[in-house]
């Protein structure tokens, strides 16, 4: 509601295109969580800081999938602290897929842009203003964070993890030629209607889901911009990359290779 009203801009505000854009646009951050009691307050604090400093209109939608560790209780406290217009709680009963979490969150999003990111502090909100700048610069449908270009990078990865990551990325680039350098990353900005359309089309899960989003985006001729990001591996809690992940990644890759 609010966003459709805001987009009917007043003529006099056209004098200041930068300011107009900032006033009109609203950015909804979707934060799917599962057992992120430690990280959630910190990521929310960093988000609020980043948005406030750059004077950006925002809302944070927390989709907790029935975490047993009390993530929801912490989220309720945050809602009280920052206000229910900024922090929206849209929990679900049990752990369901990431795709459905985005669909669920988007139903309640009032922004015209959606930002998706991990709640485990591996994605730093300081990059969001850069995403927004990039989006404006090229009028992109999607802006994706990339660990593989420019000043992008990772922290806390050993040699084995780096080899797997770079190797998987190389094979994917050769086979799919997707037009974006970081396919498995999940720090991205989408136009709302673009994300809606893409989620409808995507069927896969896990790492492959993010990859499929970009591949489908290319099929639908959406434009993609990229911003280098530093990925700091989970500060609290465990990071997971086992044999199972690699196998399901390869399966997903070959499925996309054969079907798109």
């Amino acid at each position: 509601m609010a966003s459709t009203e805001a987009s009917r801009s007043l003529p006099k505000s056209r004098r200041d295109p930068e300011g107009r854009a900032l006033r009109q646009d609203k950015f909804s951050v979707l934060l799917p969580t599962y057992n992120e009691r430690e990280n959630l307050p910190l990521i929310v604090w960093l988000l609020v800081k980043s948005f406030t400093e750059s004077v950006i209109n925002y809302e944070i939608i927390i989709i907790d999938d029935g975490s047993p560790d009390g993530t929801r209780e912490v989220a309720e406290q945050l809602e009280k602290i920052y206000g229910s217009d900024k922090i929206l709680l849209r929990p679900r009963e049990k752990k369901l897929g990431l795709g459905t979490a985005y669909i669920h969150g988007m139903k309640h999003a009032t922004g015209n842009y959606i930002i998706i990111m991990d709640a485990d502090l591996s994605h730093h909100p300081k990059f969001i203003p850069e995403f927004i700048r990039k989006q404006k610069e090229g009028n992109f449908d999607i802006v994706s964070g990339t660990r593989y270009r420019g000043n992008g990078g990772v922290y806390g990865w050993d040699l084995k993890r780096k080899i797997i990551s770079r190797g998987a990325n190389f094979i994917t680039q050769i086979l799919l030629r997707p037009g974006a350098s970081d396919l498995t990353g999940s720090f991205r900005l989408y136009r709302k209607e673009v994300l809606q359309k893409l989620i409808e089309k995507c069927v896969s899960k896990g790492y492959v889901f993010q990859m499929e989003m970009i591949v489908r985006a290319r099929q639908l001729n959406y434009t993609i911009g990229e911003v280098p990001i530093s990925f700091v591996d989970r500060v609290y809690g465990e990071s997971k990359l086992g044999g199972n992940e690699i196998i399901s990644f390869l399966k997903g890759l070959l499925t996309l290779f054969a079907t798109t």
Binding site: G152, G153, V154, Y155, S165, R166, S230, V232
Partner: peptide, 8 residues
């Protein structure tokens, strides 16, 4: 591959 010590 960049090691983002500073970011951490």
């Amino acid at each position: 591959f960049n090691d983002c010590e500073g970011a951490a």
